[in-house]
Amino acid sequence: MPLKGRIVVNEKYCKGCELCVSSCPQEVLALANDRITAKGYHPASLVADGCTGCGICSVICPDAAITVYREKAGVSRIPA
């Protein structure tokens, strides 16, 4: 089973450019159309399970808005 990851999008910085959405290899990112940021953009967010914490979204993000975490290998998972 692949490692699990998660991302946190800082909505202060996100401008909804969608570069992370089109770069995500797992296709689990999308713009959150139900809310807007203080600057008036729909922010990117995780919309499905499957994030592996690969960090590609944070590499392409022009505003360094994404923090990426990945679970350590060999550590048992805690249920949510």
């Binding site: 990851g5 690969c54 944070s58 923090t67 990426v68 350590k72 805690i78």
Partner: peptide, 9 residues
């Protein structure tokens, strides 16, 4: 303790 930070600002 269970996860590593892959990227932050």
């Amino acid at each position: 303790e269970l996860e590593t930070t892959v990227f932050e600002r």
